[in-house]
């Protein structure tokens, strides 16, 4: 790994100021995505600005009809949080199945979203729940946040501070994990709430995305049987040694049925 400068700012303002001075720098969350990428030589930032320990990024709370989770909250903390389990149990369940316990002890919500791996779990929850990504300077709707493979709406020096999840009536996540990495070969998050029925798919395509045919069928009737015979097009899905596009399209429908069934 190429060497880099390392800074551990005291507060959010200092972190953003440091990033503005380091155009080739990167923020470091829990490092469970960024460090592997750097070890492979796929990223070589001049500077790492560590966000661990910033009080502004911590905390889980319910505010009105929204669950607000600080971006620095680890997957293990979300999975174990009594507030999350009560407000959106599907989200606690999702967090408890990311990677493995050691990854969950380090990895953070904000880090996962900023990295935006096309097979990551959290983007599916954020998109299906119609969450709002809060940064140091603005609020970004989930539909505008994810812009393609490893591409988000974030400016290079912008920090995610929290995510605001509207409380759904029903929600569940079903994933078919790759047996070694635990990344989703296909993961489907289904939610019904004030914004109607939203279905977000991760792992299957070049980026997390909503599935129009599944949403349409579930809006008509929110039940697993409503998905019988609904075709998920394979066009544009990933075709790689782990699975063909057709196989992934088939899995999307299966995972969607399982998620709806899990909604009860």
């Amino acid at each position: 790994m190429q060497n880099f400068g390392f800074q551990k700012p005291r507060d959010l303002a200092a972190a953003v100021a440091a990033a503005k001075k380091a155009p080739e720098g990167k923020y470091l969350g829990g490092g469970q995505s960024l460090l592997p990428v750097m070890k492979l030589g796929l990223a070589a930032p001049s500077e790492l600005i560590a966000l661990s320990g910033l009080a502004e990024l911590k905390g889980v709370r319910v505010e009105g009809k929204e669950l607000v989770i600080g971006a620095g909250t680890t997957h293990a903390e979300v999975a174990a949080s009594a507030e999350v389990k009560k407000a959106i149990p599907a989200l606690a369940d999702l967090a408890g199945h990311i990677g493995d316990p050691q990854v969950r002890n380090r990895g953070t919500l904000g880090g996962s979203l900023a990295h935006d791996d096309p097979s990551a779990d959290y983007p599916a929850a954020v998109l299906a729940l119609g969450a709002t990504v809060v940064t140091d300077r603005r609020r970004i709707a989930a539909d505008a946040f994810f812009q393609g493979m490893f591409q988000t709406a974030l400016a290079p020096d912008e920090v995610i501070t929290a995510v605001r999840f509207p409380l759904p009536e029903k929600a569940a996540y079903a994933k078919f994990p790759h047996p070694a990495s635990k990344f989703a070969l296909v993961g489907v998050f289904v939610a019904r709430g004030a914004g109607g029925v939203r279905v977000a798919v991760t792992g299957a395509g070049p980026s997390v995305h909503r599935s129009a045919p599944l949403e349409k069928a579930l809006a008509a009737r929110f039940a697993p049987e409503a998905l019988a015979g609904v075709a998920v097009p394979a066009g544009g899905l990933q075709n790689d040694p782990f699975g063909s596009a057709e196989y992934r399209a088939h899995l999307v429908a299966v995972m969607a049925r399982r998620a709806v069934a899990a909604c009860g």
Partner: peptide, 19 residues
């Protein structure tokens, strides 16, 4: 490479010493 940091198990190949 699993070790404990503040009582939590982590993979020490994926954590910087400075952290």
């Amino acid at each position: 490479c699993t070790v404990h940091v503040d009582g939590r198990s982590v993979k020490s190949c994926t954590m910087l010493a400075v952290e």
